[in-house]
Design a protein around this nucleic acid. Structure first.
Lengths: 237, 237
DNA sequence: TGAGAAAATATTGCATACGATTTTTGCGAG
DNA sequence: CTCGCAAAAATCGTATGCAATATTTTCTCA
């Protein structure tokens, strides 16, 4: 249940910015659902948990707020974001607009090292799908997102890479809230097909496959407004 | 004229977050070049200037840092960003990817009110072009960006809208650094043509015009590495 | 017993304090 | 006069304190 313990030792970033390290750990926790949407993240609690003052905890929360992973209300505090169906649609609309282009850019820059990295990534992704249990499930969600982030890094545009980081993180949140089944196994094969197109330098095909892939992910969502979450949300739960 | 007015009431902004207000003012100052790239923005100075403590000044600078408008170095402070030619290319590559899609989305959502807003915007834009003097020049740059932001707000995707806010702001910085001529007068006529296509619901044409428009803006840049700026940058100027 | 008010408690927003790091200044040697 | 180095000043990173706001608990009274 302890968020700090579960994640990396974070030895490397000890020297670096502490707020950023906390941000990263909290983001991981949000993305793979150890922190449920709506959960309150009080400055004091985060601070004591990571053994820093409220000042730096606050900075970390502010970063997450910029990324849309946390919603902050004045004088009330920070909460893990609870994206509405409309927000969910906008997340995927944004991805449909951006990711096909990223796939094209990446196709033109693939090196052997990139191919190896993708293969490693997909292998890990497959391993988590094979495993059972909630922990593997979480790792699977994360790995699935990592495929898209790897692609963005290959594309070589740091601005788009950052946009994708935000979109992938928010997608995880959306899937956590509105996901129907584990589309992931299906997604895995689509990832492999995309890699194949990238390897062949077939940018058009990679782009088209990516578009379909995003459509499939979104199609698995149930974005009808449900009384359950809405009620809970209204009650600030 | 002001996009914020168009979308939110934003009247209680004074009551709201002060850091955000400072962020907005600093961003305006950066975007229309009252603050030159490389200028140091010390927390204390910003704080006294806006009559707040360093805490909130720091928060404002952190926000600008996320948007890529200022670069912060640990233990050294915040500086108005000084984008490299490579960063400049990435900004425009991102815009080429996103804005045609935004134009298509906007074309499908244009209302009469939107058309009126655009007409008002373009009229103002034209007024600044006609005027002379550095002040009008600055207003012209800002107005030109506002056209793109207005389009993004019409598209109705708040995520993409935020991305565009960042990209437009960074573009202003890039144009300030690498702009050759005032392409703006040419840009103005292109804006008008885009609006025409939007009015007619011709989304394909609006999208294509937008792509060319971005190309034209970028074509006006001189992105060759020059000894002057590079040297100055190396010397932390 | 239940509803509403009032007090107690918790949490945030912001300012300030202090050690750490960087930058500038002052000064003497070459 | 310039260079190098040490002291001083400035600036940053972070903790903490206080007032304002929100939340919870308790108490009162119908």
């Amino acid at each position: 249940m302890n968020i700090a313990d579960q994640t990396f030792p974070a030895v490397d970033s000890a020297n670096e910015d502490r707020a950023q390290a906390i941000r990263d750990q909290l983001r991981d926790a949000i993305v793979d659902r150890r922190l449920a949407p709506g959960t309150k993240l009080s400055e004091g609690e985060v601070g004591t948990l990571f053994d820093v003052s409220r000042t730096v905890a606050r900075a970390a929360l502010q970063m997450l707020s910029f990324e849309g992973l946390v919603r902050t209300e004045r004088n009330r505090g920070a909460f893990v974001a609870n994206p509405s169906p409309e927000e969910a649609r906008q997340v995927f609309a944004s991805r449909r607009l951006i990711e096909p282009g990223i796939a094209i850019a990446a196709a033109g820059r693939m090196t052997l090292a990139h191919v190896v990295a993708f293969k490693t990534q997909l292998e890990e992704e497959g391993r988590f799908i094979a495993e059972r249990g909630p922990s593997a499930r979480r790792s699977e969600i994360k790995a699935s997102g990592d495929f898209h982030l790897l692609l963005a890094s290959v594309a070589g545009n740091v601005i788009l890479q950052r946009f994708m980081e935000e979109l992938v993180a928010r997608s995880s949140l959306v899937i956590a809230l509105y996901g129907r089944s584990g589309v992931s196994s299906c997604g895995h094969s689509e990832h492999m097909k995309i890699l194949e197109a990238l390897e062949n330098g077939n940018s058009e095909r990679a782009s088209a496959l990516m578009l379909h892939h995003i459509d499939h992910i979104e199609a698995d969502l149930d974005l009808r407004v449900r009384s359950g979450p809405a009620l809970r949300q209204a009650l600030e739960f």
